[in-house]
Design a protein around this nucleic acid. Sequence first.
DNA 1: GTTAGCACTCCGCGCACCTGAGTGCTAAGA
DNA 2: TCTTAGCACTCAGGTGCGCGGAGTGCTAAC
Lengths: 342, 342
Amino acid sequence: MLDLDARKQEILRAVIHTYVHEAEPVGSERIAQRLRARVSAATIRNEMSALEELGFLMHPHTSAGRVPTDLGYRLYVDLLLQEEQPSPQERTRLRRFLTEHEERERLAEAVAHALASVTEYASVVSAPIPERQLFKHLHFIPLSSTRVVAVIVTDAGMIQGRAFDVREPLEPGALDRLSRLVSHTLQGYPLQEITEDLLARLVDEAAWQQRILREIVDWLRERLLAAADRRVYIEGAANILKQPEFQDARAAGPVLSALEDEDVVTDLLRAASEREIWVTIGSEHRHEELRGTSVVAAPYRMQGRPVGALGIVGPTRMQYGRAISLVRFLALSLSDILGESS
Amino acid sequence: MLDLDARKQEILRAVIHTYVHEAEPVGSERIAQRLRARVSAATIRNEMSALEELGFLMHPHTSAGRVPTDLGYRLYVDLLLQEEQPSPQERTRLRRFLTEHEERERLAEAVAHALASVTEYASVVSAPIPERQLFKHLHFIPLSSTRVVAVIVTDAGMIQGRAFDVREPLEPGALDRLSRLVSHTLQGYPLQEITEDLLARLVDEAAWQQRILREIVDWLRERLLAAADRRVYIEGAANILKQPEFQDARAAGPVLSALEDEDVVTDLLRAASEREIWVTIGSEHRHEELRGTSVVAAPYRMQGRPVGALGIVGPTRMQYGRAISLVRFLALSLSDILGESS
DNA sequence: GTTAGCACTCCGCGCACCTGAGTGCTAAGA
DNA sequence: TCTTAGCACTCAGGTGCGCGGAGTGCTAAC
């Protein structure tokens, strides 16, 4: 890649910028005038031809201009791109989006909203994983003689609850004992460290209340281990239809379907959580339906550890510079807000 | 409407059925063979022409077949339609969708999934409003000597919780007394009927624990009265793109945007909650973006009271019979499941 | 009231044509 | 050796034309 001389780089960048704006193949003439005719169109033609040879540009057909390839975008993103910081106005506007919704549970949603509303792309955000909190108590609250609500409480005061049926009425005190047993065994464990082993031991210890306990343990497992709350929020999916490359339902359909699939989106966002900023371009996607799109994503953190991620899904012809800055900015803002409370 | 003789009705129904299937203007010949040539194509032409005169059919252009108007669909839905009950297999499949996800909070989502997956339409579901549920208990769970979690439980097993700081450590038993007092006072009230008065009386009665109680009451007010949780779930919005009338992004875009707008969807579903089943056809929609679609919606109930609604959004060229039965069936199923726990 | 027959309309399609944008190549100039 | 003007070539996309076919509406006979 580094064997690309400065002029070729400049031309590639110019082609990408122009194409990102105009969504149409760009010709040599167009680039020549963009570079203020420091060289002639003919020279640019030669260079573009070379860039095509190298795989960074392509040709829809003989008499058309050039279009960047996924590889071209990749090079651009890795080496040529300069970030476009959001303007101060934009920053305050985005910040306001986040501070308006004070409720914790709505924060991820607010971010999704913010991202979608400043770009013409779709946004995806995962809710923070509660894993780092410590198990505190399991309580039972009877609803009727055969139905109880089980509530888990964490040290941070987060609660989760669910109703269970107990087939045969329990002797008085049974629930209390059960509650004490579970609380005692699990107390103080970070939720993410409550393993199969621990849960199995729990079931063993309380032979006297197998059925209900087993149900509860199943529920705990589901809630805690399976990272059950891998909720994701999608916003602005309809924005995709504004992009010229997705005018046709046959092109847009698969993308929108993929975005509706929680597994796919979770996947996208999980990939991001390792890096500081993570860009996936077109054919690099694991999911075939997304091969026509690019994703820019970043994790956000609590106490320095990544607990969720947010990103943008748009056409490969994306404003990468702007997208990356926006995602970065919102990831940091969100981390800030989440950090304040800890 | 009733001045429409039986044959015209039959022909209108035939046109609609054919058009719903084939998505192309239907000609007189087509109908003649559908009616097993009890009358000739020419006669049908006369009748169709009359139906057009009456506003139930229209003509894209001279040499094209007929297409139902919104008015035509309306007549069909109100008078001519016969419901197509879902098959036993389908019923069990749908039921399974709902019972698989046992958690209360996910139920609305599960319904949305179910609806979208058996139709080629989009589905919308509102989460049950907690307002209509009955207050059951307020419980306290201590976190530390100066911090407790308060949990409200409703008769339906729905829980809400929040942590509070108590400045000076409470004597043992104080929380219990407080909990019993609040539970006793509010028990059995529908959440929405817990008024300022009631809350004020509560504060008065417990002069001995003013501060913490006042905070709790503030929180209750906020949670219960502000009707904050008007969540809606959309599923299968991408299905819209499978419909031939929405192949073009310009047609589909506004619809998808509207479906992404919580206010619009809430509106749709609120309208449904008054009736048993509620069908809105094309131009009948209040929201312009939805004028190309039809919506079939129904409320679901707890203890006979509507607490939410679910529906289908598709093209006006919709399988109304099937859609109505499906929506009805799922509304009843959901009411059943929600009722079981009470 | 129903129907066969028929003229008429108009969409959609294939085809030929043209235009213009943009290329690649060549040969001359720096 | 690199750059550039010139030019032939290619091909997508728009336009105009003609045709076939679907479907209508009307008329006249049953």
